[in-house]
């Protein structure tokens, strides 16, 4: 199968694959934006226990966590135009990339909402009560008191979501989007040097995900800088483990096997 192994191809492919890294990152960035917005929209009804919407949000999360992303991609690619046709909207001419970003966005949104929910509930209830006691409105209490603390707790899980998303984008080729994996396949079939193409692809993914992890680690340190100089000895977060252990638990908790993928 294919031509004999030749290590020089691995390096030869790197720049060619890097030219499509932008597409991969565009999908990641676009769907993260959609995901954060959707995640908040889904998490808020569940946090404030709004009757009807609460149940709908739960079904939404269950569906997106309960079905493979690959199935969702096909489902939205073929289904969305039909559903929107009922509302007299014709998007069947829209580029594939739009469907891909919407699907990944909705998928990430489900996981994001769980992250947001978990981290908001992890902030001590007394914090909000104290905010109310000094006369803040519930909006102020949420944005000024809850959010900054919740964000610091959420970063490790968020970082894993981003990396999981990066890895999931490798499936976008199945709808014909020319991102890194699609490019690697094309390069492989052009020259019959499949294995070299995929090694070089794996290397790029590895470097990108390690970079993302490092960046988000810096973000976490910044967000937690008030915690580390906390001299009173009281821990404000309920997650009482050391940060390295907390990150490991978070990485395991994201629940995406490869799914992770």
């Amino acid at each position: 199968m294919g031509a004999p192994f030749d290590i020089t191809y691995v390096f030869g492919y790197l720049p060619k694959l890097l030219s499509t890294l932008g597409m991969t990152l565009l999908i990641v960035g676009g769907s993260l934006l959609v995901g954060i917005v959707v995640g908040f929209l889904i998490a808020l009804p569940r946090l404030y226990r709004i009757p009807m919407l609460n149940t709908l949000a739960r079904i939404y999360v269950s569906f997106f966590r309960g079905t493979p992303i690959l199935i969702q991609l096909f489902l939205f690619y073929y289904g969305l135009p039909e559903i929107l046709k009922l509302a007299h909207l014709d998007i069947s001419k829209a580029p594939v990339l739009v469907f891909v970003i919407i699907t990944y966005g909705l998928h990430t949104g489900a996981f994001m909402s769980e992250t947001i929910r978990a981290s908001v509930t992890a902030v001590d209830r007394g914090q909000v009560e104290a905010a109310y006691a000094v006369g803040m409105t519930s909006y102020q209490a949420f944005t000024r008191i809850m959010l900054p603390q919740a964000m610091a707790i959420a970063v490790p899980v968020f970082s894993n979501l981003v990396i999981a998303l990066l890895k999931d984008t490798s499936l976008a080729f199945s709808l014909g989007v020319m991102e890194m994996t699609g490019k690697a396949q094309t390069l492989g079939s052009l020259t019959q040097h499949f294995i070299e193409a995929y090694i070089s692809l794996a290397l790029i993914y590895l470097v990108v995900s390690m970079t993302l992890e490092k960046l988000l680690l810096i973000a976490e340190r910044r967000l937690l800088r008030h915690e580390e100089t906390d001299s009173t000895g009281h821990r404000r977060f309920r997650l009482e483990q050391k940060s390295s252990y907390r990150r490991m638990v978070a990485s395991v908790d994201a629940g995406k096997g490869g799914t992770e993928v």
Binding site: Y198, A202, S209
Partner: peptide, 16 residues
């Protein structure tokens, strides 16, 4: 390595 790369690449690497 495994956690930093997509599952699809593992499959393709093994397959080829």
């Amino acid at each position: 390595f495994i956690r930093g790369t997509p599952m699809l690449t593992h499959l393709l690497l093994i397959y080829f």
